[in-house]
Design a protein around this nucleic acid. Structure first.
Lengths: 341, 341
DNA sequence: CCTTTCGTTGACAGCGCTGTCATGGCCGTG
DNA sequence: CACGGCCATGACAGCGCTGTCAACGAAAGG
């Protein structure tokens, strides 16, 4: 067994008959290289299967060609979508993505992220929810003067770029759809209190009720935490109410799956006697029976777009700073007309 | 806004009143440093919030404190478990995990992985299935002389370390459990042909039938691909057979969820008229209704353990080279006694 | 007492790149 | 024809560390 030694810029320079600086110029698309020289260098690099060392680059220059994606504790499907969206965008440049699960809370979390920055020299950061709402973290990043993009942030006034979707509008549409199906007693399960999306979706729900002169009834609203079990518990309460809702709108698919399970337990046929709607359009919404009506949240695109904004802001200061991505109501078998009573 | 400049080893050395080499010694746990000197350096490093630059480390030394996790296209839940298992183990040392989704097939894929190695200088690699079965990739890694650990590989003779579970035994246990419930016509859905786990699980299924003198009937076996839709399709065929199975054992949970959906479509009550078993014990096995009887596959532990083996083999050559992790049969509501006919 | 060994520390080179500046050939201009 | 300016290229320093080796004092041995 014998280690194939790494090719360096010197090998390429020698093969192309130029100085290493010229190789560097070619590989970094710098101007002032004769086209034929450029071609010669490119050919040599290709022939040697040369890959520049990210370590050396970040040490010598002011870029590391690395961007970080930090997250805390999102659901698996959402997380994987984010990762792949960001990776896909990175792959189109010569950047790589460093995925980092943050640990700790408060100051520890900030230290954790700062440690990531110091150690890896990332050029920028993609901050996913709920970290994107964590003011102390955002402030620390500002102070560090590191470019970053937030996904679904709460503070839209902050100067850093962000991408999001219209959570409130989407929730209003879903609620209106349920109303249009004849539902009047519509249960609602709120998401995790730390996520701005939770209150936005709640607001959309209320707005739709208001618009259709349906009185808001707190008895039909339960606090959840974006996880399956919280949806299950909330639904057990809602569905055993004296005058139970004919539809339940959960703030994400995981909780909606919990509602569905509760309905099955209580032998309530879905959607004949109970309509159930989710949010996010994750994998599980297509797997359960009946399949969930939900709102498609473009997680992959959100991350792709966030990475795009970040890469642009690394190149030139003046680039689009925000993007709002479209959502879509997905009707499936878990919702239907309210039964006449 | 003002950039807080990165602290370097020089800052720490100055603060502690020693040479940078001594700081390096302390931070790398090298011997021959007086305890009080060590304490002084540690205090200075802590006080300055010093974080060594991974770039400089990997450039200067022969370690990068980075290990790579490469994967191709596993299901989201499995992938996230792997990532978190590996990250958790890394966090206990001063290592970081570089997660990389491979792109391309054949030579392109190998070039992709080699590019990762050259660019990031990873000290070692965790190779997850089905890449862990890709002989050309393994050969390329061997030639590169880079330490790596395989998760659930096919070639147990190969000298590189690996971790796996007893797929065959687990499948046999599950099948025996179904037999013990009185089932005789037991359908089976095979996993993706590229995964060794598929044939092992199939082998376990057959072994259990043989042991109980139940004739193997190819009509009850369908090829699947580890994805939901393939389970759905296979189940539609199996359940409309003239003499349909009373139980179906799918090689993973996603496909079992597909079987469950097919049963719902055909109004076959589960488990009263059909028992359904999955494999992996992923999130979805707990959210469908009825919840799936399945085999717990320790994905998190597999990755944790793989990382552990890798880190050990980086330190000293002679370390345990393999580990087989325990599985567990999880009985839930999707299986029950066969109906007497 | 001097020599050898060992434990502790530091000086310095150099990892593979990029940033800065120098060099030299070529052009156009007065 | 002399000169300045521009383009293409190269020489060289140095990023923040680790590896190597030397230096020094203290302990151990003859």
């Amino acid at each position: 067994m014998h280690t194939v030694s790494r090719k360096t810029i010197h090998d390429v320079a020698k093969a192309a008959g130029v100085a290493i600086k010229t190789v560097s110029r070619v590989l970094n698309d710098e101007p002032n290289v004769r086209p034929e020289t450029r071609a010669r260098v490119l050919a040599a690099a290709e022939q040697l299967q040369y890959q520049p060392s990210l370590s050396a680059r970040s040490l010598a220059g002011r870029r590391s060609y690395l961007i970080g994606l930090v997250y805390e504790n999102p659901s698996a499907n959402y997380l994987v979508d984010l990762q792949h969206g960001a990776m896909a965008r990175c792959r189109k440049e010569k950047f790589r993505l460093f995925v980092h699960q943050c640990s700790g809370r408060g100051d520890d979390l900030i230290r954790d992220v700062m440690g990531l920055i110091d150690q890896t020299h990332v050029d920028g950061l993609i901050v996913s929810p709920p970290l994107s709402e964590l003011a102390p973290l955002i402030a620390a990043l500002d102070q560090r003067n590191l470019p970053f993009v937030r996904i679904a942030p709460n503070d839209l006034q902050h100067p850093s770029p962000y991408v999001d979707m219209d959570d409130e509008g989407a929730a209003r549409e879903m609620t209106e759809y349920l109303i249009s199906e004849g539902h009047r007693r519509i249960g609602f399960i709120i998401g995790h209190p730390n996520h701005i999306a939770s209150s936005l979706r709640m607001r959309g729900y209320r707005a739709a009720l208001d618009q259709h002169q349906i009185a808001f009834d707190a008895a039909y609203v339960r606090q959840g935490y974006f996880v399956f079990e919280s949806g299950l518990e909330a639904a057990r309460e809602l569905l055993t109410l004296p005058n139970p809702p004919t539809a339940v709108f959960a703030s994400n698919d995981d909780m909606a799956a919990g509602v569905l399970l509760a309905a099955h337990e209580l032998a309530i046929p879905v959607p004949q006697r109970l309509s159930i709607a989710g949010f996010d359009d994750t994998y599980i919404s297509r797997i359960v029976w009946p399949r969930l009506t939900t709102v498609h949240q473009p997680s992959y695109d959100l991350a792709f777009c966030a990475t795009d904004l970040l890469l642009h802001s690394l190149k030139d200061g003046d680039s689009p700073r925000t993007a709002r991505l479209p959502h879509k109501l997905i009707r499936r078998e878990s919702t239907g007309p309210a039964r006449l009573e």
